[in-house]
């Protein structure tokens, strides 16, 4: 069964339809990269999956549960999904360890000692053990983003959404964040990521989905979509992106 199943999702802002009947299946342990120009609907799709935006039509199933049903509890759904934003969005008034353990303690009701233990373990894994008691403003962008990823997976979420997590980073710092995503994949984390890093998508994703004007234009293995695109629109997009 799919971890995530997006079925005919529509979303408009005013008169502008941003998502126009999106279908997407994501299997367990699969890493799916969403690519496409700005405004193609990548971020909006991620937002509808995390219920930050309400869909106008269609359904989204998470682990078989219809999360777009108005009877579903949105907070419960969000607790099952980890999200990492482009601009980290760490809480500036809390230490790195506190950032990572807040969800565990406040949402998942893990006792403080246990949460601290798990948080420290996670920080060790993402290479931030030395910064556990530091505040976010003391960290580099790459370190902050790694902390944000640790925060997003701290409770063992079923699905991880990454929204252009390297776009705000200095090129020198992109590598360390991508390396962490690679490790998460190796652990079997199910990931849907919007990205502009074509090389990374080719390298890490199991499947690349090209969105254009709110529709899934083409999808398939990275080598095929990025290497030998079938759709003219995909070719046009990639030609702009990967000047040869």
């Amino acid at each position: 069964m799919s971890v995530l199943s997006v079925q005919g999702v529509w979303k408009s802002y005013g008169d502008r339809a941003v998502l126009r009947g999106i279908d997407l299946e994501v299997a367990a342990h699969e890493v799916v990269a969403l690519i496409g120009a700005s405004g193609s609907g990548k971020s909006t799709l991620l937002k509808t999956i995390d219920l930050l935006e309400r869909v106008d039509d269609g359904r989204i199933l998470l682990g078989g549960d219809d999360i777009t049903d108005p009877r579903a509890d949105p907070d419960g759904v969000r607790a099952r999904i980890g999200v990492v934003f482009q601009s980290y969005n760490l809480f500036p008034h809390r230490t790195i360890l506190d950032n990572v353990t807040l969800g565990l303690r406040a949402v998942h009701r893990v006792p403080r000692d246990e949460a601290t233990r798990r948080g420290a373990e996670l920080l060790e894994r993402v290479g931030l053990a030395d910064h556990a008691s530091a505040y976010p403003d003391r960290l580099s962008g790459g370190q902050q983003q790694r902390a944000a990823i640790a925060r997003a997976v701290a409770a063992g979420q079923e699905l991880l959404l990454l929204d252009e997590v390297t776009s705000a980073l200095d090129p020198l710092l992109v590598g360390e964040v991508l390396e962490l995503v690679r490790e998460l994949k190796a652990d079997g984390t199910t990931i849907v990521m919007a990205t502009h890093e074509m090389a990374f998508a080719r390298d890490v994703a199991d499947r690349v989905v090209f969105l254009d004007a709110g529709e899934v234009c083409e999808q398939g293995p990275p080598a095929q979509v990025l290497g030998a695109p079938r759709e003219p629109r995909t070719r046009a997009f990639l030609a702009r992106f990967l000047p040869s």
Partner: peptide, 24 residues
């Protein structure tokens, strides 16, 4: 973009809207 206006909501969406109306 004209497709947006012409599109009819699916039964799922119709049911959801009815439920939200009842809730309201």
């Amino acid at each position: 973009m004209t497709a947006t206006e012409a599109r009819r909501p699916s039964p799922i969406e119709v049911e959801r809207q009815a439920f939200r109306r009842r809730q309201t």
